[in-house]
Design a protein around this nucleic acid. Structure first.
Length: 584
RNA sequence: GGGGUAGUAGUUCAGUUGGUUAGAACGCCGGCCUGUCAAGCCGGAGGUCGCGGGUUCGAGUCCCGUCUAUCCCGCCA
């Protein structure tokens, strides 16, 4: 017999009397003198071993948690009253005939079965131990399945998976680049890709027609619970398509993934919301549609009240939430300070009870005005309304955030529900007040709507783009656009972005050239695979779907990267480190 | 760069208005135990209270600084 004939999750009643060998980790040992029970664990499950022979008992007593052993034995049925319904193998146990300790384990620096019970610092330092945890393994399995289904679906639809360079040219647009020094060309640097954007468009120019890649991307910016310095994109590009073609293909892909990975069927077709409407109704371009709580315009009604702070404000918005009694003074204060931390001067409120206002700023509204408001905004009894008065961009932004916080507190965010929505009609440019010039909202290769092409040079702020994002439960899961395939239009876009001819040539020369030699209309999209897997796994932290994640300060605690390097290495690269305490 | 939270045994935590020898659970080591399944019972070992300074007769506890992790703002086309 080999080290193992079966794994620890597959033996059942039908295997009774079989002679088997198993191997795995000791999950627990229960000694009873003349009989010892051992739970043996591997990725597939747990199997109960029974030791009841003199020589085996002696070894059994020396076993401790996480030792690795192999055994040989006979599968035996359990009596009805001894069945463990919590185990897939709970109807049987293996009567051990021989046992071999393959490897002893020292006491572990963290608890494998209770991930919450350890600090993140420990979990990341001993990640290989944390990865023994069942939940974490489940997430990685979901990630694997997702990749597999994406590959299968796209391959079946004529997409080619093609690799692109990891060492590429630095283009100081957008995020900060990770740089790699060149030994051969001292003083020069490669950059790690923030995304393979230009390469995939070049594939279309090359006539490869449909491309995809599951690919690492790198951005040297500060991190968040859903951001890592290196992350994975499902990168997709197609030729001879318009926005509908891309959206239809991608919707099919998303439906396939959710249905095959977690058996969820999504609505058909996905709703489409314009950027403008998303901001007006939800205060964000990535709205969570699992709940309503839409933001309402309150300016005209507020002006009729005696509340001067609102009369002086450019804009007043209101959001109404159910379950008024839940909102105690304490909860309201918490929401208020959250609003203020995001730039609101304050968060006004009143409750609606039996047809009239109560608490907060109620006294500034006459009885007649209260009735008018309740009717016009359709405010229900037993609700609470929150209001912010400020510049329009602020009222919407703050209430958009308050909307999410309220939904969390009222537990309206059900992780088993998935509400996808396309966000479209983004502006092409946004004015950057700091640098006094226009930036691309998406990236500089995004095409404007055909009807807006004439406005590009004269009224850039009015131009709408052919961009689209897919948002699920408030997460931006994918974003993309139809690209510019006209050399002249691309040059004009660069002009609006305030890049002069020399800069264009220096940064994008090869790309502008490529557009001259016959470029098909094309467009694509890129998914954040990590965020997609977060949704599928029902976790809200990106580290839970990555095998070896970095910390918030972009360190790898296990292998201690980044690290100092030897002077010889630096000399070869022509690099001198300034103000460093240790150069090794 | 800014703000919040956390750091005490191998692990997770408790530790009162500053006061004797810093406790508990799990794990580890030893013993008992033939039906447990997070087994149970008895005993034992195990501590630079993140690090550095200060106040004090006396600091895990108060003050200052610093490091690390985490959440958020800025940032992330």
């Amino acid at each position: 017999m080999g080290i193992r004939t079966h794994n620890c999750g597959e033996l059942s009643k039908s295997d009774v009397k079989k002679s088997v060998s198993l191997a795995g980790w000791i999950n627990s040992v229960r000694t009873h003198g003349q009989i010892i029970f051992v739970d043996l664990r591997d990725r597939y499950g747990k199997t109960q071993l029974v030791l009841n022979d003199e020589s085996l008992l002696k070894i059994g007593k020396t076993l401790s948690m996480e030792d690795v052993i192999s055994i040989e034995g006979i599968v035996s049925p359990r009596d009805n009253n001894l069945i463990n319904p919590d185990l897939s193998t709970g109807h049987i146990e293996v009567i051990v005939s021989s046992i071999k300790v393959l490897s002893n384990a020292k006491p572990l620096p963290l608890s494998i079965h209770d991930r919450e019970a350890s600090t993140e610092e420990h979990r990341l330092k001993y990640r290989y131990l944390e990865l023994r945890n069942n939940d974490l393994q489940k997430n990685l399995i979901i990630r694997h399945q997702t990749s597999q289904i994406v590959r299968e679906f796209l391959s079946n639809n004529n997409f080619l998976e093609i690799e692109t360079p990891v060492l590429m040219k630095s283009t100081p647009e957008g995020a900060r680049d990770y740089l790699v020094p060149s030994r051969v060309h001292n003083g020069q640097f490669y950059a790690l890709p923030q995304s393979p954007q230009m390469y995939k468009q070049l594939f279309m120019i090359a006539g490869l027609d449909r491309y995809f890649q599951i690919v690492k991307c790198f951005r040297d910016e500060d991190l968040r619970s859903d951001r890592q310095p290196e992350f994975t994109q499902i990168d997709i590009e197609m030729s001879f398509v318009d926005e509908d073609d891309v959206r239809n293909t991608i919707e099919k892909l998303i439906r396939e993934v959710f249905s095959k990975v977690i058996n969820v069927s999504m609505k058909k077709p996905f709703p489409i919301l314009s950027y403008y409407d998303a901001i007006e109704r939800y205060g964000t371009d990535k709205p969570d549609l699992r709940f309503g709580l839409e933001i309402l315009d309150f300016k005209d009604l507020a002006d009729k009240s005696g509340f001067n702070a609102f009369k002086n404000a450019e804009d007043v918005r209101l959001i109404s939430a159910p379950n008024a009694d839940f909102f105690s003074r304490k909860v309201i204060d918490e929401l208020d300070s959250y609003a203020q931390s995001h730039g609101a001067k304050g968060l006004a409120w009143f409750k609606v009870k039996e047809g009239s206002f109560e608490g907060g700023i109620s006294k500034f509204f006459s009885d007649d005005l209260q009735k008018e408001i309740i009717n016009q905004l359709n405010l229900k009894d037993d609700t609470i309304s929150f209001m912010v008065g400020d510049k329009k961009s602020n009222t919407l932004n703050v209430l958009g955030r308050i909307r999410n916080l309220i939904a969390e507190k009222l537990e309206l965010k059900d992780n088993s529900i998935f509400e996808p929505v396309w966000i479209v009609d983004f502006p092409l440019f946004s004015w950057n007040e700091d640098s006094k010039r226009f930036d691309s909202v998406n990236h500089p290769f995004t095409a404007p709507k055909d009807k807006d092409i004439d406005k590009v040079l004269n009224n850039p702020e009015e131009v709408i783009s052919k961009g689209y994002d897919i948002v699920i439960n408030g997460y931006e899961v994918a974003g993309g656009s139809i690209r510019i395939y006209d050399n002249e239009l691309q040059r004009n876009i660069f002009k609006i972005l305030d890049l002069n001819d020399d800069e264009i040539k220096e940064k994008f020369g090869f790309f502008i050239d490529a557009l001259k030699y016959g470029t098909p209309p094309h467009g694509g999209i890129a998914f954040g695979l990590d965020r997609l897997v977060m949704l599928l796994s029902g976790v809200n932290n990106i580290r839970d779907v990555i095998a070896f994640p970095k910390t918030t300060s972009a360190s790898a605690l296990m292998e201690e990267a980044p690290s100092h390097v030897s002077k010889d290495q630096l000399d070869e690269l022509g690099i001198k480190v300034l103000d460093s305490e240790k150069d090794v």
